[in-house]
């Protein structure tokens, strides 16, 4: 669905995207991970034709972004992180307006309302909606043009857990309609919950791209964590402590680590191979802690 080759974008001296290449399969829910400033928003803005890129090539649904930006824009949709609608208009007036702009069909208009459960909120002024309801309206507007690909830029920021689950469930629905979803979020558990494939970018570069299953399996990392019972002596040993009772090591050093723990009477609770979840894997790869 999307093929990005050697994409580069610079702002002054800073490379926001550095020779980035990745592929997004049609009909997949694709997670894009990266800390603030990693280049996620720049990438989404380029894919939506909102900003130009310096080098490389991008093809969306077989169309070149450089040559057929308008056609690509009409086939895609972005759900911005900030609520992009008119607070002083009602839900219906907002939907009517954005539907008219995009020549939406009645069928698509009704689908956007239904999928986001906005039926009862139509006469309500947008400013009076709850945070979750506003997010749903923000998403519904993005569905009006029946896009082939939809980009979510951290759509659950500031949303309560109940509304977040509703939004995530609705995104899963899009798969049924054959829509390709690109999803960026700071919440790794969201990515784990809905994405089929994940790309991790850091400093504008692709660090890794694979299916979620592979990323979480043992083979993608040789890192091993050893969980032990709490003991004061742990602080004095030359071990890499992730937490007071969690030691990080690798296959080569594992035997040596176990011997050292035994010698100091530290009981081992369990040994885990590979990353235990996506967040740990992400931290392993990027060395960042604020994602």
């Amino acid at each position: 669905m999307v093929k990005i080759s050697n994409l580069t974008k610079t702002y002054g001296d800073k490379k926001a995207l550095d020779n980035l290449s990745l592929e997004i399969k049609k009909g997949s829910v694709f997670g894009l991970l990266g800390v603030n400033g990693a280049g996620k928003t720049t990438l989404l803005s380029i894919l939506n034709g909102l900003i130009d890129f310096d080098e490389g090539s991008v093809a969306v649904d077989g169309l070149s972004l450089r040559d057929e930006k308008r056609a690509i824009k009409s086939r895609s949709s972005i759900i911005p992180q900030h609520l992009a609608f008119y607070e002083n208009l009602s839900v219906k007036e907002n939907l009517d307006f954005f539907a008219s702009i995009q020549n939406a069909t009645k069928q698509d208009y009704e689908k956007a309302i239904k999928v986001n459960s906005l039926e009862l909120l139509l006469p309500q002024k947008a400013s009076t909606l709850s945070g979750g309801q506003k997010r749903r309206l923000n998403i519904a507007i993005g569905l009006l043009n029946n896009p082939k690909i939809i980009y979510f830029d951290e759509p659950t920021v500031g949303v309560d857990p109940k509304s977040r689950n509703e939004i995530l469930d609705s995104i899963k629905e899009y798969k049924k309609f054959g829509i390709t979803v690109v999803y960026t979020s700071h919440y790794m558990n969201e990515i784990e919950k809905i994405c089929d494939e994940v790309a991790i970018i850091s400093n504008g570069k692709l660090i890794e791209q694979d299916t979620l299953e592979n990323l979480l399996s043992n083979r993608v990392s040789d890192k091993i964590t050893v969980e032990v019972m709490p003991r004061d002596v742990l602080q004095t040993l030359s071990l890499e402590l992730l937490e007071p009772t969690l030691i990080r090591t690798d296959a080569i050093k594992l035997f040596e680590t176990i011997e050292l723990l035994n010698a100091n009477d530290v009981p081992i609770k369990q040994i885990r191979y590979g990353s235990t979840n996506l967040e740990k894997h992400f931290l392993d790869l990027t060395g960042e802690s604020d994602a």
Binding site: S74, I78, A84, F85, E87, I101
Partner: peptide, 12 residues
């Protein structure tokens, strides 16, 4: 509020 960006993404 990014509505102009949204309109731009809608080919306006």
């Amino acid at each position: 509020q990014n509505t102009l960006t949204r309109l731009n993404s809608m080919n306006v």
